[in-house]
Design a binder for these strands. Structure first.
Lengths: 195, 195
DNA sequence: GCTAAAAGCTAGTGGAATTAGCCAACCGAG
DNA sequence: CTCGGTTGGCTAATTCCACTAGCTTTTAGC
């Protein structure tokens, strides 16, 4: 009965790799155990439950995503930073759809949930990038929400194969970022009251 | 042993109501049976499986969503149509999160899947609305994808409670639609090559 | 080497989806 | 009105999965 040398981190990592292959909704303890060359109950020595495992994958995903966006936007500004960050996120979601789904499915358990700072770092990167457009405070919040909506929505629709293949999806993504960049540069004085 | 008077449609409808309450991922045959005052196996006289039930809920959702958007945009154009349609969609998702999740989780089983025309009607409504902005063909496809991304992303993030409460979410939604409207009216000659 | 914690295993338990097969309720034709 | 077939409900059983209990072996520290 040799030991497999597992731990919370390696189990989480293997789980993350697994959900990227089979989809987050198909995650099962039995399958993960098989991948690790171990019987199902052994996993419970390292993670408390399947929900706990999913939560750990979520934290891993948000941390990795934050790093990817930070690295991409580092040293850039304006449209360059927007495009690089957006591209990094789209690539990350495309390569790790299961992890990303785990990140979205996760619920924050309390104020000391490690998911909170992980998500916070993602938001901080976007906020820093948007600062380059010199919007006023309210607009910046709106712009941040819009940006998150667009990037999340695009990646989500792309992942489930919801775009037809007539026109290239990369082109649409590029066009969309150009659209956002142009709009953010325009800075209308009071967009909300416009009718 | 009196009969409950069920059928595929009533089971699907009850299932849709149920997932809106408890979340699509928590759907179970046992819970639905209980709601209908019937034992679990009885449901299989009306739907083939839980997957079949989920698929039927998805078709219902996309059909209802298409109707809502069509009704809202009917007789309007430009920003009015955009705002009315977007508002209709956001409201629908907010009121029927489980159905909408079912619609996104569903996979198209074949060319005669009723989900295909249902989704087609949603897309047709958006396309008709965008026609008012008189974009050229390529741009219209990009704009359609962007619109879907934004609306889906915003609703998805809102549903999972991903927006903080500092600034009003309605304001952000309105601001976002103004942003999109302005950008679509601008019609840059060649946005893709812009650097 | 000895001991105690950690990590693996086997053997359940309980819940959920699904199937088989029975029996009562309905419905149309005589 | 009744009779026979179809339909829709039920109970019982199966399977699969998450999870727990309790045993055993490895391993790290002394």
């Amino acid at each position: 009965m040799p030991r497999a040398g597992l731990g919370p981190a390696s189990v989480t990592g293997a789980g993350a790799a697994l959900v990227d292959e089979i989809g987050f909704e198909n995650l099962s303890m039995g399958l993960l155990a098989e991948r690790l060359g171990v019987k199902t109950p052994s996993l419970y020595k390292h993670v408390a439950s399947q929900a706990d495992l999913a939560h750990r994958i979520a934290v891993l995903a948000m941390t990795e995503l934050a790093d990817a966006i930070r690295d991409a936007t580092q040293g850039r500004s304006g449209k360059e930073a927007l495009v690089a960050g957006a591209h990094a996120m789209r690539t990350y979601v495309a390569e790790h759809p299961g992890r990303y789904a785990a990140g979205n499915a996760a619920i924050i358990t309390g104020p000391d949930d490690p998911l909170v700072p992980a998500i916070g770092r993602v938001l901080a990167s976007w906020t820093a990038m948007l600062h380059g457009y010199r919007l006023d405070r309210d607009q910046e919040i709106h712009a941040l929400r819009m940006l998150r909506s667009i990037l999340h929505g695009f990646s989500a629709l792309e992942t489930i194969g919801s775009f037809q293949i007539n026109t290239d999806i990369d082109d649409s993504f590029t066009w969309m970022l150009g659209f956002i960049d142009q709009g953010l540069k325009a800075k209308w004085p009071d967009l909300i009251s416009a009718h």
